[in-house]
């Protein structure tokens, strides 16, 4: 579903965010990407939602090299990749309902579809009660849920969450992870970037650890035992 082949990403200012990353994510997988701040987790996600393109190497998305996706097709692909941004990117002058339906509106969905889907996903993240609130009137955990609702409203095949538990207390974090897990059980590939390893470790079937722009370990955890799996070498 997602495949990185010898991917390097260097920003225009010369920062090498990713170096020789080889990794694959399968359909319906739940995976945590961990590592200290600045190790390149967000950059890795950006390559998947087409915000960045590799400087070297290839990123394959649904079997297609992201470089081969023409600009006019990128929006349609992005609808298949829901993103919970680190900074949420909620619009402050729109209500919870409007922020979520916004993502449907841009795809040209019908009024009927918008009015059906919006409460449905807000119910899914447990925020139906605050549908007419503005983001300013919400707590950190609630804002995170709105961002998740918006990310899944287009029924994406892939859900990316960048630090969804950052700045949240353990209990709220647990709630968020549970919501994301539930989305994964419906067949969506869910990738969660988090520097906060202790919080996530016990939920993770697979943990990818990064450091200085490279993958240092890739552990698959089965239900019964944790078995290390060697990182794929390109």
């Amino acid at each position: 579903m997602i495949r990185f082949k010898r991917v390097h990403l260097t920003y225009p200012n010369g920062v090498r965010a990713l170096e020789n990353v080889n990794i694959e994510f399968k359909k319906g997988e739940l995976c945590f990407i961990t590592g200290p701040t600045g190790c390149g987790k967000s950059s890795l996600l950006k390559l998947i939602y087409l915000d960045e393109y590799p400087t070297r190497g290839r990123v394959l998305l649904f079997g297609k090299d992201t470089y081969d996706i023409p600009a006019h097709q990128a929006p349609y692909l992005r609808r298949k990749v829901g993103v919970v941004f680190q900074d949420f990117k909620l619009l402050p002058n729109k209500t919870v309902r409007e922020n979520v339906s916004f993502a449907l509106e841009v795809t040209g969905a019908s009024r009927y579809e918008i009015e059906r889907r919006t409460p449905q996903v807000l119910d899914q993240v447990g925020l139906l009660g605050k549908i007419d609130h503005f983001p300013a009137a919400l707590s950190g955990g609630e804002i995170q849920r709105v961002a998740i609702a918006r990310a899944i409203v287009n029924e994406p095949l892939i859900l990316l969450a960048d630090e969804p538990t950052g700045n949240l207390d353990p209990e709220t974090s647990l709630g968020i992870i549970t919501v994301l897990q539930r989305i994964q059980t419906r067949g969506t590939t869910v990738l969660i970037a988090s520097h906060d390893i202790p919080t996530v470790e016990r939920f993770a079937p697979r943990i990818v650890a990064m450091q200085d722009g490279g993958v240092v370990s890739d552990k698959a955890v089965t239900r019964t035992q944790a078995a290390p799996q060697p990182n794929e070498k390109g």
């Binding site: 929006p75 990117k89 619009l91 916004f102 993502a103 841009v106 287009n154």
Partner: peptide, 8 residues
């Protein structure tokens, strides 16, 4: 944001 959520 519109671009990132898939607006053409």
């Amino acid at each position: 944001t519109m671009q990132l959520v898939g607006a053409t």
